[in-house]
Design a protein around this nucleic acid. Sequence first.
DNA 1: ACAGGCGAAACTTTATACAATCTTCGCCCA
DNA 2: TGGGCGAAGATTGTATAAAGTTTCGCCTGT
Lengths: 246, 246
Amino acid sequence: MIEPSNQNFELMAAKPRPKSDAPDVSDRVSRIREGVTAAILEHRLLPGTKLGEDEIGEIYGASRTLVRTALQQLAHEGIVNIEKNRGAFVARPTPADAREVFEARRLIEPTIVDHACEAVSPAWIERLQQHLTEEREAELRGDARASVRLSGDFHRLIAEMSGHSIYLGFLKELIARSSLIILLYRRHDTPACGTDHHAEIVTAIRKRDKQAARTQMLSHLNEIEAELFLKDPAADELRLADVLGV
Amino acid sequence: MIEPSNQNFELMAAKPRPKSDAPDVSDRVSRIREGVTAAILEHRLLPGTKLGEDEIGEIYGASRTLVRTALQQLAHEGIVNIEKNRGAFVARPTPADAREVFEARRLIEPTIVDHACEAVSPAWIERLQQHLTEEREAELRGDARASVRLSGDFHRLIAEMSGHSIYLGFLKELIARSSLIILLYRRHDTPACGTDHHAEIVTAIRKRDKQAARTQMLSHLNEIEAELFLKDPAADELRLADVLGV
DNA sequence: ACAGGCGAAACTTTATACAATCTTCGCCCA
DNA sequence: TGGGCGAAGATTGTATAAAGTTTCGCCTGT
């Protein structure tokens, strides 16, 4: 069983040194990556925004070498597009991309929450409850940015709980893209993720009720996607709208 | 419907320039990455092998900047580990990693082949048949390296056929890791992927028989994993065996 | 007035130089 | 003889400079 506090995935001490995939928080590249990621996920950086290397480097007091490394990682995660000889831009997912992302989430997340039911422990429950509280607080004080970030963090937390590092990696990518998609295509100003659903999922996990957990997760994802307006673009018509929208 | 020959994912011409994720074959970084990837997937580079930056750079006639970029991409794909201040090494997946990889494949690939059944077209069928022929030829002439690569390519081909770019990206990663896992943990010298299974899967796809395709794919994956010897390591005991085995 | 082309500026890409860190090997001492 | 300390060598991490590409403004010619 994996506890929430300590670094996971050290189970078999096979590596004498910390695994490269682990978040080296003190790493300067990671600081840049996480800073930019947060800005994108909290919708402070809008899709299409150019991310100049000099600009970012100056902000973080780093050379372009490090900025470039961070941007390449973000490109691999799918939330930044790097166009040759033109630079990096915040990604602008198409409706087709959006449907793919949510299809993948509907496939993976029920399985993840299934694993989470098996990994449940008092420490994890407390961690989840604490998270729900944070979400409610952000909602109450109308902090939209924090709300967006926290609703993504909820899903990531469950993936961490599952102890399945590959699913976790995949889901991180899907969540980041989802955040952009929601920003671009949501119909109303409804909160990105209803906290109520999250609470119900936690309840199911606590009961170790896999079936309920899967069902709740699935309907939660369906609801999020249902709030989107993913029109099939009449080719260049949408393109025009996009460009003008920026 | 997507045809095999042309570059996929250009469906909505949304981007004036080629998508960054597309394989820029002429790109020098990509050449390095694909060269190293091929060497790893064909088992010419063994797990644990150090990948010195100067060494690779000299081979490809490139500066360390480019080599470093390529290695970072490979690290993100999970087939290379980068240890701080020590360099890059061919990854050495643990049995736990192996189980995760195959679990993920069992989750994703049935869905992928499902999509493939919908995307089927004469051109794709021909492409698949041609691939099966290549696999048989490599098998006949005992070209183990080509066999390993081609059996991975088969699964990737189906993912491309599905037209689902996210699943394709995930699967690429899983296939690359699988190749390392098979190298490390297979019991006998059985071929990595029975061509017979592949042929059966193609047949199911051609008939657009989703149920059969899913079942065939699942049992195929199960069979591959069954040929592995994924013992839970008594911690350092396995580590020792590994080290001596190299 | 407008289309086309030339040219400078800004940026990305690549290469190289410098700094920091780790590894190795020899030496010294217990 | 075994272990620990330390300096030399090698390798990676970071910054900066050189090279190439794109973009945009301006100018000229029709």
